[in-house]
Amino acid sequence: MKILLTGTRAPVTRDLAAAFAARGHEVHGADSLAAASTTRTLNSFTLHAPPAQRFDAFARDAQALVDRLQPDLILPLCEDIFYWTKASQGWPLFAPDLKALIQLHSKFEFVVLADCLGLPVPQTRRLSPGEDAEPGDWVYKPEYSRFGRRLVIQPRQAQALARDPKNPWLRQAWIPGEDVCFHAIARDGALRAFAAYRSSWRTRGGASYYFDPLEPELAQRLEAMAARLAAALNLTGQFACDLRHDPDGRLWLIECNPRATSGLHLLAHDPGALSDAFTGGGDSILRSDGRATCIGPAMWLYGLRPGRYRPWRTDLRRARNVFAGVTCAAVLDTMGFSLRAALAGRNLQDFLTADMECNRDLTCT
């Protein structure tokens, strides 16, 4: 098969390219930003217009690329999935339709869906126009956002919130406990791969760079939730959920990312089975082998801090480094992106998502 990966700045590009190559597939890539540390494993790479900022130009670039490559499978890896789906002219996308994508992406509509399926969710509502944050055990966040950015958690006093009519704020009950996550791959409503994990290593913006598999009993409970979601939507695609595990042992679904996330790294131990999860072959579910993974350069850049050296050293030693063998290229990518971000007056995480992020309901435009 000829496979096109898009959003190849994502570190999961490396594991996916290796997985598809293990089955003899031809792997190509496309993105509106080029990252040498991930694209060097591809047969070819094509740069296209930024979809969130120049959608019409992106749609033309995407159509030209599809016409030229004639891929058997297109696998978007980042929030570009919304724009590839919106632009699609019957392309072989590994993704649900745009309506289902937005339903999962919306932090409000996802809670409504999960509640209708009998899955536990915190009390959540949209704020009315002009309503601001109030003190109390609440979390305030935009309906469409990522990496935990712009969160207002348990405010101690009233706080004004920036307004965007296309991206309203939500108020959600604060759930005490620990953060846990899962990443799932589904085809025709059935799970084909699943990994559940936690992370104590995160950037200040909330993005994880260390992925530690959960104990089997807890992972099984999360897998049952994932299976119910996949079946309810007859889902074909990747989806990842953030949850809270409260002190009483209850699990609460918080939000969903209907795309690839770094939890996929926990499935790379069996490249052939990971490839099959997307392309077909066998009915078994690929699960984590229990070994942690990490984004090595991020562990050095963000994790090595005074007072955390011992746990940092221990965790680094027991994890597979996603960028093993290409650390220098990954560091150079990060330096280059950081410089471009600074010149644009943005932080690095904002810069790396601004050209493809989806902050509104694209089905309404």
Rank of each mutant, 00 (worst) to 15 (best):
Phe55Met: 07
Arg150Met: 13
Pro165Cys: 03
Phe278Glu: 12
Thr353Gln: 11
Ala21Asn: 12
Val66Ser: 04
Gly205His: 12
Thr124Glu: 04
Asp276Glu: 13
Asp248Met: 07
Asp67Val: 11
Glu79Val: 00
Glu178Gly: 06
Ala260Phe: 02
Pro306Leu: 06
Glu134Gln: 15
Thr38Met: 04
Ala30Met: 15
Gly29Gln: 07
Ala196Cys: 05
Phe211His: 09
Pro135Ser: 11
Thr8Gln: 05
Asp289Leu: 06
Ala329Lys: 13
Ala341Ile: 04
Asp276Asn: 12
Ala57Asp: 15
Ala114Val: 10
Asn234Gln: 14
Leu233Pro: 06
Pro142Ser: 08
Leu5Trp: 04
Pro51His: 09
Thr261Gln: 04
Arg340Met: 04
Leu214Ala: 14
Arg291Cys: 04
Lys107Glu: 03
Gly7Val: 09
Leu65His: 07
Pro120Tyr: 07
Gln63Arg: 15
Trp312Ser: 08
Asp248Thr: 11
Arg310Glu: 12
Phe239Val: 03
His25Arg: 10
Arg126Gln: 14
Leu266Gln: 02
Trp252Phe: 01
Arg228Glu: 12
Cys116Ile: 02
Ala49Gly: 09
Gly325Asp: 10
Glu178Trp: 06
Ala260Leu: 02
Trp312Met: 06
Gly130Thr: 11
Thr6Val: 08
Cys241Met: 10
Glu215Ile: 10
Leu191Cys: 10
His245Leu: 15
Leu274Thr: 05
Asp333His: 02
Ser262His: 08
Val12Gly: 01
Cys364Phe: 00
